[in-house]
Amino acid sequence: MVPVSYYLVLSGILFTCGVIGFLIKRNVITIFMSIELMLNGVNLSFVAFAAHWQKLSGQVFVFFVMVVAAAEAAVGLAIIIAVFRTRETLNVDQVNLLKL
């Protein structure tokens, strides 16, 4: 028997690590991985609450979050490739224009 709050604390730790990585990292691919980390933290809290309230809707929502994360990763990495082709860099400090 594990209290639900333990799972919530773990999910909070993961989300916080994602936020910190998003803020301190300078490589755009690592920033993307931090976003994935945040989504994983949210997924864990969804599943924990699904177990707490004995409803399966939370697990179905995790499925939707995964679909959105996969679509976001595909489009985002394509944008990274397009930016890299014109800028020749992955450092976000040097990508300071919205124009490609």
């Binding site: 594990v2 799972y7 773990l10 691919i29 993307f32 991985m33 994935e36 994983n40 997924n43 864990l44 599943v47 924990a48 699904a50 177990a51 697990q59 995790v62 499925f63 995964m66 994360a69 996969a70 990763a73 595909a74 990495l77």
Partner: peptide, 27 residues
């Protein structure tokens, strides 16, 4: 594994296949 401990077998399998498999291979 945490999902398995919570009883979410399907989510655990999808986590391994989609996230650890497909998305990370893309990265």
């Amino acid at each position: 594994v945490e999902y398995l401990l919570l009883g979410a077998e399907f989510v655990a399998a999808v986590q391994v296949i989609v996230y650890a498999g497909a998305v990370m291979v893309l990265f």
